[in-house]
Protein backbone atom coordinates (compact mmCIF):
# COMPACT_ATOMS: atom_id res chain seq x y z
CA UNK A 1 0.00 0.00 0.00
CA UNK A 2 1.61 3.34 -1.01
CA UNK A 3 2.41 5.32 2.10
CA UNK A 4 0.74 8.48 0.75
CA UNK A 5 -2.59 6.68 0.58
CA UNK A 6 -2.93 5.19 4.05
CA UNK A 7 -6.15 6.20 5.79
CA UNK A 8 -6.93 5.06 9.32
CA UNK A 9 -10.15 4.99 11.31
CA UNK A 10 -11.11 3.72 14.74
CA UNK A 11 -13.05 0.47 14.90
CA UNK A 12 -16.66 0.41 16.11
CA UNK A 13 -15.90 -2.51 18.44
CA UNK A 14 -13.92 -0.39 20.89
CA UNK A 15 -14.44 2.01 23.76
CA UNK A 16 -11.72 4.59 24.39
CA UNK A 17 -11.00 7.19 27.05
CA UNK A 18 -8.07 9.58 27.43
CA UNK A 19 -6.43 9.71 30.84
CA UNK A 20 -3.36 11.80 31.70
CA UNK A 21 -2.29 12.10 28.07
CA UNK A 22 -2.62 8.39 27.42
CA UNK A 23 -5.47 6.60 25.71
CA UNK A 24 -7.13 3.56 27.26
CA UNK A 25 -8.80 1.40 24.63
CA UNK A 26 -11.05 -1.56 25.33
CA UNK A 27 -11.75 -4.02 22.53
CA UNK A 28 -15.14 -5.55 23.25
CA UNK A 29 -14.65 -8.23 20.60
CA UNK A 30 -12.00 -10.15 22.56
CA UNK A 31 -11.90 -8.36 25.94
CA UNK A 32 -8.43 -6.95 25.39
CA UNK A 33 -7.36 -3.68 26.95
CA UNK A 34 -4.77 -1.37 25.39
CA UNK A 35 -2.87 1.54 26.86
CA UNK A 36 -1.36 3.84 24.22
CA UNK A 37 1.59 6.13 24.91
CA UNK A 38 1.44 9.83 24.11
CA UNK A 39 2.58 9.61 20.48
CA UNK A 40 0.33 6.63 19.81
CA UNK A 41 -2.56 8.55 21.39
CA UNK A 42 -2.01 11.49 19.04
CA UNK A 43 -2.20 9.16 16.03
CA UNK A 44 -5.24 7.35 17.43
CA UNK A 45 -7.13 10.57 18.10
CA UNK A 46 -6.41 11.84 14.59
CA UNK A 47 -7.70 8.63 12.99
CA UNK A 48 -10.81 10.16 11.43
CA UNK A 49 -10.74 8.03 8.30
CA UNK A 50 -10.32 11.06 6.06
CA UNK A 51 -6.86 12.37 6.91
CA UNK A 52 -3.96 10.49 5.29
CA UNK A 53 -1.47 9.05 7.76
CA UNK A 54 1.34 11.13 6.25
CA UNK A 55 -0.66 14.27 6.98
CA UNK A 56 -1.33 13.14 10.55
CA UNK A 57 2.39 12.57 11.06
CA UNK A 58 3.31 15.93 9.54
CA UNK A 59 0.64 18.04 11.23
CA UNK A 60 0.31 16.28 14.58
CA UNK A 61 3.42 14.27 15.43
CA UNK A 62 6.10 16.47 13.89
CA UNK A 63 4.43 19.61 15.25
CA UNK A 64 4.15 18.31 18.81
CA UNK A 65 7.27 16.17 19.12
CA UNK A 66 10.94 16.62 18.37
CA UNK A 67 11.41 13.97 15.68
CA UNK A 68 12.69 13.47 12.15
CA UNK A 69 9.67 13.33 9.79
CA UNK A 70 10.83 10.18 8.01
CA UNK A 71 11.45 8.40 11.30
CA UNK A 72 8.03 9.47 12.56
CA UNK A 73 6.38 8.22 9.36
CA UNK A 74 8.09 4.82 9.55
CA UNK A 75 7.17 4.42 13.22
CA UNK A 76 3.57 5.46 12.56
CA UNK A 77 3.18 2.94 9.75
CA UNK A 78 4.50 0.14 11.96
CA UNK A 79 2.26 1.19 14.85
CA UNK A 80 -0.83 1.39 12.65
CA UNK A 81 -0.16 -2.07 11.23
CA UNK A 82 0.17 -3.54 14.73
CA UNK A 83 -2.97 -1.88 16.06
CA UNK A 84 -4.85 -2.89 12.93
CA UNK A 85 -3.87 -6.52 13.55
CA UNK A 86 -5.55 -6.22 16.96
CA UNK A 87 -8.75 -4.87 15.40
CA UNK A 88 -8.43 -1.43 17.00
CA UNK A 89 -7.79 0.55 13.83
CA UNK A 90 -9.14 0.10 10.33
CA UNK A 91 -6.62 0.73 7.54
CA UNK A 92 -7.38 1.44 3.90
CA UNK A 93 -5.95 3.11 0.82
CA UNK A 94 -9.22 5.01 0.48
CA UNK A 95 -10.98 7.34 2.93
CA UNK A 96 -12.96 5.55 5.62
CA UNK A 97 -15.85 6.53 7.86
CA UNK A 98 -14.66 6.84 11.45
CA UNK A 99 -16.85 4.42 13.38
CA UNK A 100 -16.46 5.79 16.88
CA UNK A 101 -16.64 9.22 18.41
CA UNK A 102 -13.35 10.85 19.36
Amino acid sequence: MPEDCIYIARSSAIAARALAGEMMVMNSADSTFFTLNEVATAIFQAADGHTPLREIVRNQICEQFDVDPEQAQADAEQFVAELSAHGILLVSNQPLAAETAR
Binding site: V25, M26, S31, T32, F33, F34, T35, L36, N37, E38, V39, A40, I43, I61, E63, Q64, F65, D66, V67, A72, D75, A76, F79, E82, L83, H86
Partner: peptide, 15 residues
Protein backbone atom coordinates in the same frame (compact mmCIF):
# COMPACT_ATOMS: atom_id res chain seq x y z
CA UNK B 1 8.88 23.66 23.11
CA UNK B 2 8.41 20.35 21.33
CA UNK B 3 7.93 17.33 23.52
CA UNK B 4 10.33 14.42 23.74
CA UNK B 5 9.46 11.88 21.05
CA UNK B 6 8.77 8.31 21.97
CA UNK B 7 8.10 5.66 19.35
CA UNK B 8 4.32 5.09 19.23
CA UNK B 9 3.63 2.01 21.32
CA UNK B 10 0.91 0.30 23.28
CA UNK B 11 0.55 -2.16 26.13
CA UNK B 12 -1.97 -4.94 25.68
CA UNK B 13 -3.66 -6.79 28.54
CA UNK B 14 -6.37 -9.40 28.73
CA UNK B 15 -9.34 -8.40 30.87
Amino acid sequence: EKKLYQKPAFRCEQV
